[in-house]
């Protein structure tokens, strides 16, 4: 059974007139997919992700229509208008940003509980009252991403990787059907980056959550996502299996720019990673990796 989770059709966006950052972007994501969005900085990844979450309005260029974005068949935005259903839709989409996701002065546990705002009764959410069961759920989510022991620290006392994982825990509590991550690992060291990507792919496989993750480096796309969408200058230049993304092919797509998409020392390792058929990694292997990371 396949259901369309995200449908993006003919999307344009420009911040300054005449200089579009998204040019006629079209793609669909099926429920349960894990898709990488790659591209150099300035290629439109973040804008696209913010548009998917209904945080950025899309608009037309000149007399061209702006296009539309649908989530599970319901309209998120069309022609520069955020749909009135957006609030309800947002609660089905968990977004993890590159950094600064958390409210700095609230505890990590409370930050995670805020994921319930979309679902809890409005008055109770507004007063910030969360039941014991809800707090237990939050603790479970935190332990799932491996930072349960930091639950009572303030958001800004966590390291970058821990903040990222707390933000993922928030989307778990949100019970979102789609998890969108905007460069979740760009500011992390390699070990933390792997940890975050492992958690994302675990959520994708065991909860059936559709994951769209934008990445700066191709290695991680090869290692974790069966499908890659590549953006350049606001246009989709490739949409297909990640395994086709050899360095030569990327050089074709991006020219000089392709160098910025690889960690130079890891180019060889990426080939190895691709052959390891990462999408089917076994649970014991994951546990071993989790053990090694801990």
């Amino acid at each position: 059974m396949s259901e369309i989770a995200i449908s993006v059709s003919g999307v344009w966006k420009s911040f300054t007139p005449g200089r579009p950052v998204l040019k006629d972007v079209n793609f669909q994501v099926q429920r349960g997919e894990m898709v990488a969005l790659i591209g150099a900085s300035g290629s439109g990844k973040s804008t696209l992700i913010r548009a998917l979450g209904g945080l950025e309005r899309i608009d037309g260029v000149g007399d061209k229509p702006a296009g539309s974005i649908e989530v599970f068949g319901a309209l998120m935005q069309r022609e520069g208008r955020i749909s009135s259903a957006a609030k309800a839709l947002r609660s089905r989409i968990g977004i993890v940003f590159q950094q600064f996701n958390l409210v700095p002065r609230l505890s990590t546990l409370r930050n995670v509980c805020l994921g319930l705002l979309g679902a809890a009764p409005r008055w109770r959410g507004s007063l910030g009252i969360f039941t014991l069961d809800e707090r237990k759920m939050a603790m479970h989510a935190l332990s799932r991403v491996g930072i349960a022991e930091h639950a009572l620290k303030r958001g800004n006392q966590l390291s970058g990787g821990q903040q990222q994982r707390a933000a993922i825990a928030r989307t778990l509590l949100q019970r979102s059907d789609i998890l969108i991550a905007d460069e979740p690992i760009a500011s992390l060291d390699p070990a933390s980056a792997r940890r975050v990507m492992d958690i994302l792919s675990e959520i994708n496989r065991s909860d059936g959550v559709t994951v769209v993750v934008s990445l700066h480096q191709v290695e991680y796309a090869l290692g974790y996502c069966p499908r890659t969408i590549a953006l350049r200058g606001g246009e989709i230049v490739y949409d297909g299996p990640s395994s086709a993304l050899t360095p030569d092919f990327l050089a074709d797509l991006y020219g000089e720019e392709s160098e910025t998409l690889f960690l130079p020392a890891l180019t060889a390792a990426a080939d190895v990673a691709r052959k390891a058929a990462p999408a089917n990694r076994t649970a014991p292997a994951l546990d071993a990796m989790a053990g090694a990371a801990a």
């Binding site: 979450g53 945080l55 609030k87 309800a88 839709l89 947002r90 609660s91 089905r92 989409i93 968990g94 977004i95 940003f97 950094q99 600064f100 996701n101 958390l102 409210v103 700095p104 805020l114 994921g115 319930l116 705002l117 979309g118 679902a119 409005r122 959410g125 507004s126 933000a167 928030r170 949100q174």
Partner: peptide, 17 residues
């Protein structure tokens, strides 16, 4: 900093929240 506010918005919270 507008970013934590967007984090809250992305959970489907109301403007008040």
């Amino acid at each position: 900093d507008p970013r934590p506010v967007e984090g809250i918005r992305s959970t489907g919270a109301t403007r008040m929240q």
